Computed example of a mutant assay.
Amino acid sequence: MAYSASTKKSQDILTCGLCETDTKIKVKCMDCDLYGCPKCTDKLHAKFKNTDLHDIVALKDLHSHIEDTDVTSEFKPVKCKDQ
């Protein structure tokens, strides 16, 4: 069997950034850059200093939130290596 230069890559399963076990991610803290399950967001994240000031965004609203904050202007175009 010949080795193929292109390998298939799978997507990683997203887990909570705090408990690192729950995969029922509902929110992202834009300040901590962590994804969170409901349990950890309510119980653990709230215990960190100044997290009441953090911007917590529901995953379903993440795309529109990024557009509203104009984060997309930080991205630079990347040329495709296959061209």
Results as ranks from 00 to 15, higher is better:
K76P: 01
L34Q: 10
I25Q: 00
D70N: 15
S10R: 10
H65Q: 03
T72I: 14
L59E: 01
D70R: 13
G17K: 00
H45Q: 05
S64R: 10
I56C: 03
L14I: 11
K24P: 01
L18H: 02
E67H: 12
S6T: 10
T23C: 03
H54F: 03
D33Q: 13
L53V: 06
S64H: 07
M30C: 11
I13R: 14
K24A: 11
A2Y: 09
K47N: 09
F75K: 03
S10C: 08
T72P: 00
A58T: 06
Q11C: 08
T15D: 02
D52A: 13
H54C: 03
K81P: 14
K60W: 04
Y35L: 08
P38W: 08
A46I: 08
T15G: 00
I25W: 01
Y3T: 12
I25D: 00
K76G: 07
K49E: 09
H45S: 01
D52Q: 13
V57Y: 05
Y3W: 09
L18W: 03
N50G: 08
C16K: 04
V27F: 05
Y3K: 15
A46G: 11
V78R: 12
C16A: 06
T41C: 15
A58R: 09
D42P: 02
K60E: 15
E20I: 10
D33T: 10
C32Y: 03
L59R: 02
F75D: 05
M30V: 11
K49A: 07
L59K: 01
Y3E: 14
P38V: 14
T72H: 10
V71A: 11
D61F: 00
K43R: 10
S64Q: 12
T69F: 05
A46E: 10
H63K: 11
F48W: 09
H65S: 02
F75Q: 04
D70Y: 06
D82Y: 13
V78W: 07
S64V: 07
